[in-house]
Simulated assay, not measured.
Amino acid sequence: MVRTALTALCLLMAFATGAQAQNQPPVVAITQIVEHPALDAVHQGIRDELAEQGYKPGESVELMFESAQGNAAIASQIARKFVGEQPDVIVAIATPSAQTAAAAARDIPLVFSAVTDPVEARLVESLEIPGANITGVTDMLPLEKHIDLLQRVMPEAKRIGTVYNPGEANAVALVNQLEKRLAKRDLELVKAAATKTSEVLGAARSLVGKVDAIYLTTDNTVISAVEAVISVGERADIPVFAADTATVARGAVAALGFDYYDVGRQTGAMVARILSGTAPADIPVETVEELSLFVNPAAAERMGITLPAAVVEDAAEVVSE
């Protein structure tokens, strides 16, 4: 009789625990390699899209967030910590965070965002059929259009400089593609390496006297310290162009790029699909199509050039200082 009562009690407790677990909101863990305006906009877009789709933080979804502060080792620690928490979905913003999360989260759905080349980064097998537990949104840059913009503003430029982190797969892939595309137009790419933000200023200074203009990709190390590059451009009359539109408000001459908030919204919609039961392997990697031109005429003047009136007229946003 006692044994029967104990058995019944155990079953009741198990049922209660299971019912409580079923009533708990899903958990989404977001890891971000570093905090800067573009990636912060992705993060905010994810949160807003989830809320709009009924996943409100603190109510119908629990959100966890960690920034690696630009440190790959910390990104790995965050990934392992999140895997231990067993969230329903892990969201990784930028290539380094996505790679470390992919290495740690073998059985947890993973959605990456703002990853330039997910195939080259070995996150997915292909964009159409990602496979395994991973999918996401790529921000592969339209490099040809960026070069078109630079030549439209500075048709006489022959040597283009760039600062990049050779330890970041995203950055290396972009620089390699950029070099090939510039060569086809008889333009030379001059590269300066910076493995951490404290090296960005020195790398930018090394380009003085060697280049006619500087073009920056979405390299997270460099964009986190972009003011250092801009200060060099202003002192040496070297116009700085960027792939990240948020960089224009920080002092770049012009950028033709995505609205990273929209990238976040697109990512958030993908996360919502997974929370609703769709497997990541069944969701093709999505790309961003819409581009916006941002210009900063005052920054151009400080770097020794005047933006053509037609370029300013075409801009979606003219930054005034």
Rank of each mutant, 00 (worst) to 15 (best):
I108N: 09
G251L: 07
A243T: 06
V229I: 10
E188Y: 02
M64H: 13
V91E: 00
R273L: 08
A255I: 06
Q151V: 12
A204L: 00
E179S: 12
A29P: 09
L189F: 10
V285N: 00
L178Q: 00
V163M: 08
L39K: 02
I214A: 00
P109K: 05
I214V: 13
V83C: 08
K145D: 14
N71E: 15
E179C: 08
R273M: 12
Q99A: 12
A309N: 11
M303F: 08
L307M: 10
V211P: 01
A236W: 02
E168G: 09
I238P: 00
K191T: 14
L182R: 06
P26L: 07
A315H: 12
A114E: 03
V263S: 00
E120P: 03
T195F: 07
V34K: 05
A213W: 02
S60Y: 08
V27Y: 10
A38I: 00
L189K: 03
I274L: 07
D212H: 13
A38E: 02
I230P: 00
V91F: 05
L293N: 01
E290I: 14
I283T: 08
N165I: 02
N133A: 07
A104T: 08
L178S: 01
F65Q: 06
T138A: 15
L275H: 05
L189D: 06
A21W: 11
V137H: 03
Q53L: 15
Q24C: 09
I230C: 10
A132G: 11
V288E: 10
I30T: 02
S198Y: 08
E188W: 02
R205A: 09
L63K: 00
V119S: 07
R205N: 15
S76C: 08
A242H: 01
P96S: 06
A75K: 05
L149T: 03
G277D: 13
E290D: 15
P284C: 12
I160P: 04
R106P: 05
S97Y: 07
A272S: 13
E59Q: 15
M64S: 10
G84Y: 09
D148P: 04
N220H: 11
A38Y: 02
I305W: 05
Q177Y: 03
Y215K: 05
V91S: 01
I223D: 03
I283K: 01
D107W: 09
I283D: 06
I129P: 02
A299V: 06
A94S: 15
A103S: 15
N176V: 11
A203M: 08
A225S: 11
A272G: 08
D314P: 07
I214G: 01
